[in-house]
Amino acid sequence: MAAVKVLQILASGPLTTLQDLGRTGYGAFGVPPSGAVDAFSLRIGNLLVGNPDHTAGLEITLMGLRAKVLSEMVVAITGGDMQPLHNGRPLPMWEAALLNPGDTLSFQVAKTGCRSYLTVGGGFEAPKIMGSAATNLSTGFGGLDGRALKKGDLLASHSPHTHLGCAGNRLHGAMVPEYADNWRLRVIWGPQEPDFPQATKTRFLKDAFTVTSESDRTGIRLKGPLLPAKEGLPTSIISEGVVPGAIQVPGSGQPIILLGETVTGGYRKIATVISADLPWLGQIRPDHGVKFEAVTLSEAQKALQKREDTLNRLREQIGSHPICTQGTTP
């Protein structure tokens, strides 16, 4: 079936890209995962409109996307609250809504969080490169020609009409994440935590950090107490692979939380954010406060299980509405 044009971009905002759950398995070739920084919100969005988890949606940063609807379709908006409007009226988030050709969809400034996700039933069409449609901005591939969206772009979907029955699906209010201005991120120490003196480790947990404006999809840069390594150690280490959430401390002593655009690094990682809290990294923005809390591996595993349970509950709840999977075919 030919792809159907679903959206025309009227204004892109500062940064809007196509993202799915990212590329896995290409680290040995130096290819980073990319993908939605808040993968949890993207997954919820995809569930609500009847898509598989790994389907590409729009990641909208801070504000400003405006688009014209070109086809009948269902969409869901999840993540940070940019007070989305449908034909000028507030559109509820965390809920699948039916849109019609000629409608407009617009996003204001993020009231909470940093990134909104727009998913469409049937998914946005984008070629899969190394198993993923995610946009890799620094190298310039994936998504829409490897770049951010701009005014005039047309986005297509393969099967928007078969998902119309998903309209009305919603995430229960109690399950909607609440975004703070001051974040508490759970971490596991290491891998290079033995290179830091006890005083640095104490400060790392006790003091608050502020997110700087140099933060972007490559990393969250923090300002706060200096985190020196033990005396006499060189500032860098032998380069090694890294994962999103690793907190590296360069020579400046100011930590950077790495996100999914980096595969290797030559600085010490004092600690690493646990999987259950990785989605929060997508909602932290400049001037927000960050505090760290050290947990054990088993606590991290339990926290992740809890997060997955939310998705499973939603999956069950939606699965009991056959109309979403049955749909209507034009």
Binding site: T24, G27, S239, E240, Q301
Partner: peptide, 22 residues
């Protein structure tokens, strides 16, 4: 195991924590 990243003197093994343990 979802990714293996060989380095100068190390390999980073990335895994799905719902399927594997260290």
């Amino acid at each position: 195991l979802t990714d293996t990243m060989p380095g100068y003197r190390s390999i980073l093994l990335v895994f799905d924590p719902l399927k594997l343990t260290p």
